[in-house]
């Protein structure tokens, strides 16, 4: 069970959170030019890296804030976390 650094509550056990998968997926602007492929890329395709991965977590049983985490998918090491509306660089 991971220990996840919530930017508001500090280190808390994984059981308080729910995972939201890959971070930084922005919803495309939908118009008639948006191809099936582009929509499928947004809807279905996700990176599955072996290594560092930026992902979203929700402190659902805590402060209920969504935030970003950078986690290593092999060692599960978490090297940073930052709020939803800030960039990852501002929190180093």
């Amino acid at each position: 069970m991971l220990l996840i650094p919530c930017p508001w509550c500090g280190l808390r056990a994984e059981s308080e959170f729910s995972s939201g998968g890959e971070a930084n997926i922005s919803r495309p602007y939908v118009n008639n030019d948006l191809s099936d492929n582009d929509w499928a890329d947004y809807l279905f395709y996700r990176k599955n890296p072996k290594g560092w991965h930026q992902e979203q977590w929700h402190h659902v049983k805590g402060c209920r804030r969504w935030f970003n985490v950078e986690r290593h998918t092999v060692t599960h090491e978490i090297r940073k976390s930052w709020p939803m509306n800030s960039s990852s660089d501002s929190n180093d």
Binding site: Q56, W66, M84
Partner: peptide
């Protein structure tokens, strides 16, 4: 949670 996620993340 669904509403919350769209409001916070998107």
């Amino acid at each position: 949670n669904w509403l919350d996620e769209w409001l916070q993340c998107e």
